[in-house]
Amino acid sequence: MNGLDKKITYFVFCLIFFLGLSLPVTTFGAQIYFDTPSVSVFSSTKDWHVDLLFDAEGESVNAIFLDIVFDETLVEFIHANQDDTIVTSWLESPKENGNHIILSGIMAGGFSGLIDPVTNTKGPAKIARFFFHPKKEGSSEFVFQDVFVASNDGLGSSIETSALSFSFTLSKEGIAQGEIVADKRPPEVFKPMVSNDESIFNGQYFLVFETRDIGSGVDYYEVKEGRGSWYEAVSPYQINDQTLRKQIYVKAVDKSGNIRVVKTFDSGIPVSNVFIIIILIVVSYLLSKFSLKKRFNKSIIEK
């Protein structure tokens, strides 16, 4: 290599180096992974759990679909706890389907990282905590079979996401994570809404509802119209009484059996209004009686 070649090589190297510096630093892709506070060797005799985390890595996302495969001969999926989830509405809350756990949901307004107000930094956040019951000793892994993460760009475009498998071992000597704390809190208060649209139920009125439960997660909902019976229901629920005269009650039951019951509207006249009406009736009665008495006295005097 002669002197000129060396200089050209040096020039090209510098060109690439400075161009690289001049370009904005861009990170591609989000990350989904399992996290656990202890090592991944769990007790083969006690229930255990693992958190499913999402790191936006600077991207803004707003919808997620995951299909996770697990070895059903080794573990039994008990339930998913949705405490502290970044999912604002579940389309499919984490449920077992054979040896798959499928979940999907949205993050209304988008998610680009969980803000820690103390450090003023953004970090990963929890999607759900999965609880498992061990069936026998052995080793296995959770594998992501299908992953879709949507960009918060208003187009539904997908974001390149790396989903990392989780390897674990179940052994008698493995770490027991401790007993699951009993959930005594009912699901959060919620507000069912009535609507109708020609695209579903032939334009008839329907009810929508959704709540969150901190502790064990919502198991199911029941609906009761007026003095009728409770029926298990899913949102949207087609209302039987299309005159909408009946009060509708919605019961949310969490996986620990705690119950929250809410209703669609406050029926009847409020107590304060009833009180005012009674006072008005009494006052008008007294006034009419007083004026009648006055007229009667006047007529007697005239006679």
């Binding site: 919808a63 209304a108 307004g109 949507a150 539904g156």
Partner: peptide, 14 residues
């Protein structure tokens, strides 16, 4: 599918 829900989440007003 989930892409339609992503558009809905983007437009969400509450």
């Amino acid at each position: 599918d989930i892409r339609d829900f992503s558009i809905l989440a983007y437009e969400w007003t509450g």
